Computed example of a mutant assay.
Amino acid sequence: MSENNQTVDIQSPIAAGSPFPDGYDIVGEREFLKDLIDSDQVDPTDPRYPRLVELENREAALSKMRVAHKSREGANTEVTDREALGLRDMGKLAVANDESDSVDIHTMHAARLFLGRETKPGENGYAMTGGRRVASALRAIWHLSSKDNPYADYALILSDERMDEVRREIDKRIKNMQRDLERYESQGLNFHVLKNPKPYRVELGFRSPYGYSVIMLINRFDYYVRMVKTMAAKSIIGDSEGRSKIYELTKQCRSIFEEVVNFHRILMRPQLVELSRSDFLPTAQDDGKKRVAAVVKLLGEVPREVFKGQIVPRHSRRRIQLSPQELRLLDEVPLNGDMPVAEESTLL
Score class of each variant (00 low, 15 high):
D40L: 10
P121Q: 08
D239E: 12
K234I: 15
H143A: 15
F280A: 04
T45R: 07
D222Q: 02
G188E: 06
G86C: 12
G238P: 06
V228N: 01
F307M: 07
D46R: 00
S2Q: 11
Q321E: 15
S278H: 07
D148P: 00
A60Y: 09
Y24W: 08
A232D: 10
A94E: 07
T283W: 03
Q11T: 08
R112K: 15
E248I: 13
Y24K: 02
R58G: 04
G116K: 01
A293V: 06
R133P: 00
V333E: 03
L33N: 02
G17W: 09
E99P: 03
I256S: 01
R179I: 12
R265C: 13
R269K: 12
I141F: 03
R201M: 09
L87Q: 13
R179F: 14
L138W: 00
E3N: 06
D279P: 04
P21A: 10
S146V: 09
D331I: 06
R304W: 07
E78Y: 15
L267D: 00
I105T: 03
E259I: 09
M268K: 08
Y154H: 15
V134C: 04
M128L: 14
A342M: 11
V228C: 06
A75Y: 11
A127H: 06
L158P: 02
Y151H: 07
D164C: 05
G86N: 15
S208H: 04
V260H: 01
T129H: 05
N176V: 12
L113P: 03
S244V: 12
E78N: 11
M65H: 11
E3W: 09
D338V: 09
N336C: 06
D43W: 13
E54A: 09
S12H: 10
S255L: 13
H192S: 15
A94M: 06
R51D: 06
V261A: 10
V261H: 09
N196E: 07
M177E: 02
L217Y: 02
P197Y: 05
P324T: 06
V42A: 07
V42T: 05
M227H: 04
R133Q: 12
W142S: 02
S146N: 12
E54I: 08
F206D: 04
